[in-house]
Amino acid sequence: MQRTRNIALCVAAGALVSSVSAAVPAVAAPGSPACKNVALSWAGGTARPGGGSDQQETARVRVKNSGGSTCSLLGAPSVMLTTNGKPETLLQQPGGNTVNLAPGKTATFAITFLSDSGKNGNEIIRPDQAVVTLPGGTVKALTWRWGSVTRQEAASRPGNYVSPIA
């Protein structure tokens, strides 16, 4: 009985740590200035405008240093898909290496999501934008053009997530 209780406590603690780690924003690389002067743009992936494939899709985002000096990024950005101001926060994948961006240079990250046609009975959102908070705190928004997305915030294994910047 005690062993079963201990296992249950460990599982609950692991779930708590997983949910907390998803909410911790990435930070600027130590000793390097955060990227403040950047431009974001869509950069390919499997997602198609209008969406509705009922599959997991990937939309790549390009981060361009539009400032006059090198800056650094470390980790995955925070991304919220918003629908009339209501957010769906995507899980941040852990890890990543420091990316130093010289003026005019670019890096990318991927937004992976479950595209949804609305025919499957899933709870969906129809995002109008992706609000991106880069490591270091710079916030930018991109117009969402990939159609409806299956809501995943409460899923135990979310299919919507963001990769570290590379």
Results as ranks from 00 to 15, higher is better:
T89E: 09
A107L: 10
I124P: 02
S117P: 05
T82K: 14
Q93D: 06
L134W: 06
T108A: 08
T98W: 00
Q129H: 11
N97V: 05
G104N: 09
Q129S: 12
P135L: 05
P103Q: 00
A107D: 03
Q92P: 00
T70C: 01
T106K: 05
T133R: 13
T70V: 10
V132G: 01
T83Y: 04
K86P: 00
G118R: 10
I124W: 03
P103S: 01
N100Y: 09
A107F: 07
V139P: 00
T106W: 02
K105G: 00
T112G: 03
S78K: 07
A107P: 04
N122S: 11
A130T: 10
K119W: 05
Q129Y: 03
V79L: 12
P87C: 04
T138P: 07
Q92W: 00
L101S: 01
L73R: 04
G121P: 06
T98I: 13
S115R: 12
K105I: 03
A107W: 10
L91Q: 13
T108I: 10
F113L: 06
N97K: 14
K105R: 15
M80E: 12
G118C: 10
N100V: 10
A130H: 08
T82V: 11
S78A: 09
G95F: 14
E123V: 15
G75T: 05
G85N: 12
P87D: 11
Q129T: 08
P87L: 08
C71L: 09
L74F: 07
G137P: 02
I111E: 01
L73K: 05
